[in-house]
Amino acid sequence: MDELEEMIAFWDDFADDYDSIQEESATTLLDDLNTFVKKQPLFPVSSFLDLAGGTGKYIEVFLPLVERYTLVDFSPRMLDIARKKAPHSNVTFIEQTQASFLAQTRDCSFDVVFSAMNPALDTPKQLLELLRIAKKAVYLLRLVADEDVLFSPLEEKPFNLMHQYKKWLHGMPFQVVEFVYPLEETIEKSFFYEYFSEEIPYTTLEKIAATYFKTDSTFLNPRQVIFELLIIPVSQEEVAR
């Protein structure tokens, strides 16, 4: 089994759990994104691409504003789940890798190209490819921060791909829309110890726990989740540079 086959097998195996996790979101991102998009003068559009669309989480956001919706993903199981969510004649599902799909797609094929949390969109060349196949705009959505009082200070911050996207545009105009969600969750003291048991010495955990848990076995942990929507209006002259 080569690397690509291993990746497809992983996402096929994870697809059902992944979809359940997506459905259990603690934020109102889908509703907020839909409200925002409805107000954009760009929409409605004729053709829309959801690249690396997975189990179709964002179909409900954009489909009411789109004549033809195309979702591309390389996981057959992900696509099976997505099809059940959108059994509509104007939604097309394509089982293909991102690289193969982009290589076979002509310039300006879709009014809007959208991709959310795409792990494979990680080079300047790929970003330019999305701009190349878009006629009007590229929309990129990513989680850019998920920080809390208790865990975040003890963990390494994840790499911020959204920051890279902005750099790779080399001065091309773009708009950034933030969706910010203040949350709280109750953390058990025992879970806190178990979570860091293999990474942080027990004596250090005791000192930290004394600050937050004090006389209680639980802590109401403040958390802030931030998503960014990067909107890049397309100028083929800029893309060709």
Rank of each mutant, 00 (worst) to 15 (best):
M1Q: 11
D2N: 15
M7C: 09
A9N: 12
F10E: 05
W11C: 03
F14Q: 15
F14S: 12
D16L: 07
Y18T: 12
Y18A: 12
D19S: 13
S20Q: 11
Q22G: 11
E23S: 15
D31L: 12
D31N: 14
D32R: 04
D32S: 08
L33N: 01
L33W: 02
V37Q: 09
V37S: 09
P41Q: 14
P41T: 14
L42I: 10
P44A: 09
S46C: 10
Y58A: 08
L65G: 07
V66T: 14
V66C: 08
T70C: 10
P76D: 10
R77Q: 14
N90Y: 11
V91Q: 08
F93C: 13
I94L: 14
L102K: 11
L102W: 07
A103R: 15
C108I: 06
S109P: 04
D111W: 01
D111Y: 06
V112F: 11
A116M: 04
M117P: 00
L121P: 01
T123W: 01
L130I: 02
A137C: 10
L140K: 07
L140D: 02
R142E: 11
A145G: 05
L150N: 03
F151I: 02
E156I: 09
L161S: 08
L161R: 11
K167W: 01
W168C: 05
L169G: 02
L169W: 08
H170V: 05
M172I: 07
V177W: 06
F179D: 00
Y181F: 09
P182N: 13
P182C: 12
E198Y: 09
P201N: 11
T204R: 15
A210R: 08
A210V: 03
F213H: 06
D216R: 08
Q224W: 01
I226F: 00
E228C: 00
L229Q: 03
S235H: 15
S235E: 13
A240H: 13
A240R: 15
A240Q: 12
R241A: 10
